[in-house]
Design a protein around this nucleic acid. Structure first.
Length: 448
RNA sequence: AGAGAGGUGGCAGAGUGGUCGAAUGCGACGGAUUCGAAAUCCGUUAUACCGGCAACGGUAUCGGGGGUUCGAAUCCCCCCCUCUCUGCCA
């Protein structure tokens, strides 16, 4: 076979850190076969260049395929010639071999040109595809901002604290359970130190969440909290959110912003046996976010941190089951909030507020009584095949053909804002009364 | 961190320039045998892209990139990763 490198590596492979040429994001086949649905969906995201971008991708695809056919044909001829030359050399027909070689060198330049053009077309196509976000599910409302999100339902009762209620940043000082100044001393802003009952409450919440997830059928995993570049690409943090992750340059590793990254990447480059589906995993990890440029008025206390704790649930399912799984995951998170006796609401995010990679996202918010505002404590998303396409996470469908799976994940739950709400909503002159479900986990019923 | 070894199909493991996409073994799947099973025997068993309604055909892929050659898993260069020993250490 004629050497023909530079065209391969369409997929990002494990262990190959230099190859940043990640595969396409939206499946090309979806774009081709469901162009109308894609355009309608992208309109809900106010993705202005959708039509032009999609048309450009389709055009590039057509050119690429035509070229590919030519290229393959030339390649086939060259392979055949090489075989013949081999035969002639063996039989000692030097002159015959030389004649064929002439034709071969002609083909070689042609092949080289094709290969370069193909690579260029693929690069253009990939870059375009990178820009196109996931197509929202049909239930996603159109809208521009958080104001356009749809309140699906509310639960619990908002407490009436009366006058003198304190926000959590006052309460943590009063009871000396979380110390921001100490965190600043040893690390920096946004790295709180939990002390005494505060530390024990953290540990209790983590255990409570993990146990609940386990009861709901999720298998617990404890993944690394540093991941390599390939994993960052796999779940889509790279290249878009590079600046949001802490990066260890010496070893080229990233501190995870969520355990979604290591847990979902467990299944990168896998063809999962049908009897192993759906994959249901849960894991606790600390999470690290640089939050570059997002510091402002609403980030006091525990509202936004550089390091925080979170229990995550992840599911990987066959396409036809993903939306049922999604609802089930939302129900699970809702149950946690009910057990914690926190007033909450479930939002269906509008097209403009949804993440780039998601097809449908529910946010769960708890009422922070002293701040008088809703705090997002969980985000449960169905990515459909968007992540799986990058991850190369597949199963065997009809006729043994490989097909992309759907990936989903959600927080269940992120701790800091839960703590904020617990402190504020349950404050009394005597102390903070914790919900009964936590008593055995904490070893105490009241913070005082 | 120093020294050495190595990266080949689901796994193990051959293969040092010419039908090698790749021997062999294991596993898996289908079938035969069996009342059933084990054992045995026969067959099948990678992924992606292009063409085709399909059957099927073509191309690429032996860690990644580049080079030599009519022809590279095999030769040369660069990079990445893993393992072992030594050192350090929770």
């Amino acid at each position: 076979m004629i050497a023909q490198r530079g065209l391969k590596a369409r997929w990002l492979r494990a262990g190959d850190r230099r190859n940043t040429f990640a595969p396409t994001m939206l499946q090309l086949s979806v774009l081709k076969e469901q162009t109308d649905r894609v355009l309608v969906g992208l309109a809900k995201r106010n993705f202005k260049t959708a039509e032009a971008d999609v048309a450009a991708v389709l055009d590039l695809d057509q050119r690429r395929r035509a070229l590919q056919t030519q290229h393959d044909t030339a390649q086939a001829e060259a392979n055949e010639l090489a075989r013949q030359i081999g035969g002639l050399m063996k039989s000692g027909d030097k002159a015959g071999a030389e004649t064929l070689k002439a034709r071969t060198s002609e083909l070689k330049t042609q092949i080289k040109t094709h290969a370069d053009e193909l690579a260029a077309l693929e690069k253009q196509q990939t870059e375009l595809l990178y820009k196109i976000p996931n197509v929202p599910h049909e239930s996603v409302p159109a809208g521009r901002s958080a104001d356009d999100n749809e309140v699906v339902r509310e639960g619990g009762t908002k407490p009436d604290l009366g006058p003198g209620a304190q926000p959590h940043w006052e309460l943590i000082k009063k009871y000396d359970i979380i110390d921001f100044d100490l965190g600043i001393k040893i690390t920096g802003a946004g790295f709180p130190v939990y002390k005494g009952q505060g530390a024990r409450l953290q540990r209790a919440l983590i255990n409570f969440f993990l146990e609940q997830a386990r009861d709901a059928g999720y298998v617990e995993v404890q993944p690394p909290i540093l991941v390599n570049e390939a994993s960052g690409y796999g779940t889509g943090q790279l290249p878009d959110k590079e600046g949001q992750m802490y990066h260890d340059k010496a070893d080229n590793l990233y501190l995870i912003p969520t355990s979604e990254v290591p847990i979902t990447n467990l299944y990168r480059d896998e063809i999962i046996a049908t009897d192993k589906l759906p994959v249901r995993n849960t894991g606790y990890t600390p999470c690290f976010r640089r939050e570059a440029g997002s510091w402002g008025a609403d980030v006091r206390g525990l509202n936004r941190l550089h390091q925080f704790d979170k229990v995550e649930i992840v599911q990987i399912t066959q396409p036809e089951h993903s939306y049922a799984a999604h609802e089930q995951m939302v129900a699970h998170v809702e149950k946690l909030l009910q057990l914690l006796e926190l007033p909450y609401r479930v939002l269906r995010l509008c097209g403009g507020d949804m993440g780039f990679t998601s097809a449908l996202t529910y946010d769960l918010e708890v009422w922070s009584a002293a701040q008088g505002r809703w705090l997002e404590v969980s985000s449960v998303s169905n990515f459909e095949t968007f992540q799986a396409n990058r991850l190369k996470c597949r199963y065997r469908g009809e006729g043994g053909k490989t097909q992309l799976l759907h990936t989903l994940n959600g927080s269940a739950l992120a701790l800091p804002r839960i703590v904020a709400a617990l402190l504020e909503n349950n404050q009394t002159p005597e102390g903070i009364n914790l919900p009964s479900v936590l008593h055995s986990y904490c070893g105490f019923a009241q913070i005082k």
